[in-house]
Amino acid sequence: MTTTLPPDLKARRERLVLDHFADETRQDFDAVLATFPHPHYELIPSGEVHDGIDTVRQYYIDSRLAFPDQRHEIIQLRHTDDAVIVEFWLLGTHRGPLRGLPPTGNAFRCRMIALFIFEGERLVCERVYFDTLTMLRQLLAGTPPDMLPQLIGGLLGQPQARQAEAA
């Protein structure tokens, strides 16, 4: 992919993205948050937007509660004039609650794309795309079939699933 970026700007952006990934794996959330002037995440499959230090920090806490060993394997980085595109594997083991889904103990490996959007040198957004079904299929493997509707309904935020959980 051809860009018109000066090589030094391209290198600084790439270093920031690589540091961001490494700090996430180390769970050094202060360092990750410092890569943004104003942290902003968009998780496209779920429609979630986490905006600001407090909500992004809570997203990190919640996701690591569910997957304490969450980590990445970078496949490839690509540069555009306003973004670094990272293709990667996200891996983890489901050890804690995930939106009403009790821990299954199952591991997952899901291929993802993250767009790190920049304004000049400033990271302004991380936008993540992935296939939810790929992840769920791995997390729910071995679950008794009669439990699937309630568990999936809870993940999707369906009121009847939450009411059944509360009963």
Rank of each mutant, 00 (worst) to 15 (best):
G47Q: 05
E14H: 04
F29A: 04
A31T: 11
L33W: 00
L18F: 01
H38P: 04
H20D: 10
A31F: 08
D19P: 05
G52T: 01
V49T: 12
V49Y: 01
Q27I: 02
T35G: 07
I53R: 15
E42C: 11
A31K: 12
I44N: 12
L16C: 00
H40T: 08
F29H: 11
P45Q: 06
E42Y: 13
R12W: 00
L16R: 09
H38G: 09
I44T: 15
P45T: 05
L16S: 01
R13W: 00
R13P: 00
H20K: 04
E24R: 12
D28Y: 07
L33N: 02
H40L: 10
D51L: 12
R26N: 07
L16V: 01
D30S: 08
R13M: 01
D54P: 01
T55R: 11
E48T: 11
E48R: 14
D23Q: 15
D51W: 04
F36L: 08
V17L: 00
T25S: 14
L18Q: 14
R12I: 01
P45M: 02
E24I: 09
Y41A: 06
R13T: 02
H50F: 12
D54N: 09
S46G: 12
D51E: 12
V32H: 07
D54Y: 05
H50A: 04
D54L: 06
F36C: 09
